[in-house]
Write a protein that binds this DNA or RNA. Structure first.
Lengths: 325, 325
DNA sequence: CTGTTAGCGCTTTCAT
DNA sequence: ATGAAAGCGCTAACAG
């Protein structure tokens, strides 16, 4: 079934079928009706690949995330996808999971000629960066902040988020602060911010349980075990993610350590999740869906040829105090 | 930059460039080298849209999920995506979120000529079903079981899962069982299975807090409040999802109700999540990543022209007992 | 091993 | 309001 078959049956030319489907206002109600009836009778589905090739509009936006299993990004994906679909765009999902190289993934994506690209984070290989710029495709980087994005940016400062965690714990009177921290780029920046504030307040030594992967629950348990095993004195534990923090809390409870009585615990990021435990977790809340919406809007605007007013949008973060500190 | 530009610079014909990139073994090491050097110097990215049109192979697999924000499907997406990417396929993500109609989404997807389609669930509009069959594209439905799938199927019996929940609670000696249950298709089937077993054991009346949306945390709190407010006597609460169950547990703890001392709580599905709370939740565990892997394998096999041995794969489920019952 | 020819199915452009 | 011609960029099919 091609557009020519439909045209033949409807007694019109292929281009008229195309117009009836894509610009119905350019066609007589009569022919429109004829075409539509043939389409629905035959079950004709226009080949968007051919359309994309000729029109040079793929109607695809690519979205690249690191692994999504830690659930940090699902709200962003959902919002991004919803907004884009509303405008007739489909989402090509790229998951650059641990072993894979983001640049290979993006190289593959570029071949599909997406009209926009959403990237998680700002840490991309220089070569990838160059190729993206050379492609002239609108790009939004998200979940981080930098004065020199590839193109557009929707995120927040991880350094400031780390600083906020430190200040909060200090304000609560804690000085013996331990870290249970995952090993990923953005977490590293938060840690830097956190440590710098602690250092300013005369706390240069911060015992840390470093975990290889970005925060899984079991790692949180191990992290606390490591901290306590090291003999360090801690009145508060800051974690690089809420899932890690949940693990810390579980391990504490198993050991009869009361929270927040004996140890305060603080998390980061997965907000809703932070309410799911008891004690519900004090954490840094990120407007994850907002990031997706703003990214979609920025891409759509640029696709439609508008220059966006703010290339860099800082969505910030909130500190949500619950009963874990 | 097109393949012709590369060909000109390399001093070969376009088809030789095509072969150098797609079938390097058909080309002299010398020309291969020349082509590759031109490609990397110029930053040429082959237009897959054109390639797809001509070769009739889109190298795309579409994956349709209901909203992913409840995190039930992320492991499946991740596994599906990983397996497909390994074979050079990209994932077109379709989220048929609440307000949208799945059939529109799928109609849009068919235009992209995916080589395979993953669908969540078996409840599709008759018209959609017909179109999918007519398309001759390999389809895997997942997360449910039926003797009459569109094409292939990887899932488990929600009825049996519901029955297993009932039997477990009965075996634990519970007869005053309450439900906090979300309102979605598959949850409804589980409920049916659960109620039928209870009825067999002489328990026809089961107080139920029905929630409009599929399991959000806050709904679980409300559900338990509703159950208790109705004056029903309950020694156990079964929930349609782990997130709902977490809400139930939180609400119970706020009211000074001990779990499992006063009330037993049971969840469903989100397995890992069930360990994140305390008391950690007794639940039905689903091999979510396995579903994604098997679905990808089934699709890839059929794409490569192999007939799959088992069109219907029942991955089953496990009952994982934790300290909430 | 390499090249020529043709055409995938659609939409742009220009004409009527 | 409709149509004819052309061609998007690539690869299948065939030839040498």
């Amino acid at each position: 079934m091609t557009i020519r078959d439909v045209a033949k049956v409807a007694g019109v030319s292929p281009i008229t079928v195309s117009r009836a489907l894509n610009h119905p206002e350019l066609v007589t109600p009569d022919t429109l009706e004829r075409v539509r009836s043939v389409v629905s009778r035959t079950g004709y589905v226009p080949n968007e690949i051919a359309g994309s090739l000729r029109s040079r509009r793929s109607r695809i936006v690519a979205a690249v995330f690191p692994q999504i299993t830690n659930s940090m990004f699902v709200d962003t994906i959902q919002a991004l996808s919803d907004c884009l679909r509303q405008e007739g765009y489909q989402v090509l999902l790229g998951l650059s999971s641990y072993e894979e190289r983001e640049d290979e993934l993006i190289a593959g994506i570029l071949g599909r000629r997406p009209e926009g690209i959403y990237l998680t984070g700002i840490g991309h290989a220089p070569d990838t960066r160059r190729r993206l710029i050379a492609s002239h495709i609108p790009v939004v980087e998200a979940w981080d902040l930098t004065p020199t994005p590839i193109d557009m940016l929707v995120g927040f400062s991880h350094e400031k988020a780390g600083e906020a965690m430190a200040r909060y714990l200090l304000a609560k009177g804690h000085r013996d602060i331990g870290l249970v921290w995952g090993n990923d780029l953005r977490a590293g920046v938060r840690r830097k911010g956190l440590l710098s504030v602690l250092a300013e307040h005369g706390i240069p030594e911060v015992p840390t349980g470093l975990e290889p992967a970005p925060g899984m629950f079991q790692r949180g348990r191990e992290g606390l075990a490591e901290l306590l095993g090291s003999g360090a004195r801690v009145s508060a534990v800051a974690c690089s993610s809420d899932v890690l923090a949940q693990g810390v809390i579980a391990e504490a409870q198993d050991r009869g350590i009361r929270i927040p009585g004996d140890i305060a615990v603080m998390g980061f990021g997965d907000f809703d999740f932070a309410a799911h435990t008891s004690p519900s977790l004090t954490t840094i809340a990120i407007e994850k869906a907002m990031i997706g919406r703003l990214a979609a809007q920025a891409l759509l605007a640029r696709i439609q040829g508008k220059e966006v007013a703010e290339r860099i949008v800082d969505v910030g973060f909130r500190l949500v105090e619950r009963d874990s500190t």
